[in-house]
Design a protein around this nucleic acid. Sequence first.
DNA 1: AATAATATATGCATCATGCAAATAGGAGCT
DNA 2: AGCTCCTATTTGCATGATGCATATATTATT
Lengths: 146, 146
Amino acid sequence: MPEKNSPDSEPSEYAVYLRGEQLLQPGLLLLLARQPMHGYELIQSLSGLSFNQEECDPATVYRNLRRMEDDGLVRSEWQTGLSGPARRVYHLTTEGERLLEMMATNARRRREQLEAFLTMFTNTRLRGGGVPLKELPLREEEEEKT
Amino acid sequence: MPEKNSPDSEPSEYAVYLRGEQLLQPGLLLLLARQPMHGYELIQSLSGLSFNQEECDPATVYRNLRRMEDDGLVRSEWQTGLSGPARRVYHLTTEGERLLEMMATNARRRREQLEAFLTMFTNTRLRGGGVPLKELPLREEEEEKT
DNA sequence: AATAATATATGCATCATGCAAATAGGAGCT
DNA sequence: AGCTCCTATTTGCATGATGCATATATTATT
């Protein structure tokens, strides 16, 4: 677990969460920022979010929640007495809130990067010329600007 | 729409490249779309790109190039006679061009996802009054229902 | 000769993920 | 009672990508 990243002057322990490019962990923290939930509910809720169309693997979700709890980003209590198996209800901590904000900052940065990539892509003229869609042999003379 | 995301109805051969959230492989293909280059040059060029501030690990770059060549996205020829060690000059193939376009589509989709996440984040009131955005002290009564 | 820069490649440990499967409580059905 | 399904969490295992160090070779510089 040796981290090679920044010297521990700030919460560099967060680097593990900030370097990721996916939105699973941010989505979990964001949902928990709205209201406490248990894992199964989080999985279902994530399926409805527009930024997470991939159906989440339960194992990944639960393991991430565990790790986040180990890192003090969330806390959990067992909720029994209800129908079905016991549920572990997670809620966000202040530290998790801080990380969520950093994730948002990170998301803005990645959005800029994607923007830069797309700009450069648009300005690059591909040798193929047009944009042949898959199995679309229809190929007329499109605008050839050069 | 909980559908399996598959922008490519093609075999999942490309899925390996499209699922990634990082911009290393797209960056490599984009650079090669502009002009043939060898690995070392690609590493240096990537360092100057605005969407890739992280300095690339040579091993990762070379291994990615190798894999891309195995998958027919790029091809390479040895270039000798120049000063220094021989260089393996890569150039994009038609297939690589197709994938690059799919990566761009993918990047647009991820941009939308980031946008959606950030929108939801902005609309979420954090308990801590963490003031994620400066000067937004507006705070209404937040009702918690049991 | 020693060193540094160029240029590519390999070995190894780590780490996160996907998939499968185990465990377990409760509800509904025959 | 048996059976199945949904809920809910957890663990095991293989895979695959990455970071880091290191090895190799060529050329220029000191």
